[in-house]
Amino acid sequence: MGEHMIRATGLRRRFGRATALDGLDLAVPAGVVHGLLGPNGAGKSTTVRVLATLIRPDGGRAEVAGHDVVRDAARARTRIGLVGQHAAVDELLTGRQNLVLFGRLFHLTTRTARARAAELLAAFRLEEAADRPVRGYSGGMRRRLDLAAGMILAPPVLFLDEPTTGLDPRARTEVWDAVRALAEGGTTVLLTTQYLEEADRLAHSLSVIDHGRVIAEGSPDLLKSRVGGDRLDVAVADPADLPAAAAVLARISGGEPETDAAAARVGAPVADRAAALTEAVRALDAAGVEVADIALRRPTLDEVFLALTGDRSPQEPAPDDRPTARTEAAV
């Protein structure tokens, strides 16, 4: 089996003319939560679907828990749990009926399937709703039931394809807690997400995917430091001082500062945290720049993402997401 629970080499897959996977490599050690991060259409879901035996790759190989996902798909299926983008549970049945149904399809005896259902309903805090039809569940409850269904065999590998897409913040936190608990229990989790915050909070390691291949890999911290470590942000009281402030930052960081004229703010990556901050305060004072705010911060994964993929943000926020004069006037 080796030390890797998930191992993929050179995965390729086309759908018609579109290339979904273009030589994707992945290696995830046991007991790790690994995040697949990328914009829409980057190949995240296709990767999960290949590894979960749902799609046959055109090229390359993949093994999950030591079983080849193409040649030994039947065996691989007894070692994985899949939680897809939809909450794939039966709306008409109760939570308990769902878990017993799936347990029976895993060929557990009725008795074991019932016992396991009860155990999972308790673990995912669904006992109270257990005998109500799923139709009446909240989004978070559905997702937890979905996770429970993925855990029936207590599989060593669990695939989560955008597990919190469309959930409210409270439900999202519930799912995160559940995923953390699974990882603590030793389950290897492969998680796709568009939310950088989610990857940041859950994943031990990340693969950033774009155009069907991995363009960066490592821990969230490592990826952040690759884009220049810490950043120093300065907001000035008078926008006329921006060029002066930028000149100061350029001298300290040795890099090109980014100026946001609308926010009267200028920022630059800095190497030596505390020294850079002290130096900046002193130099700005000497230059007669009145500082409204000054802060040291780590880059967000959003910035990492933009730096790695060019101009495409994974969330691709619509331009009118930002409060503009027009939307404010409308209020």
Binding site: T78, A123, F124, M151, D177, R180, G185, T187
Partner: peptide, 18 residues
């Protein structure tokens, strides 16, 4: 409460071979 409880399982689940 979630983390206190066994999500994986307390007893081994007999996974039937294909």
């Amino acid at each position: 409460t979630l983390e206190d409880r066994p999500v994986t399982t307390t007893t081994a689940i007999p996974v039937p071979p294909p």
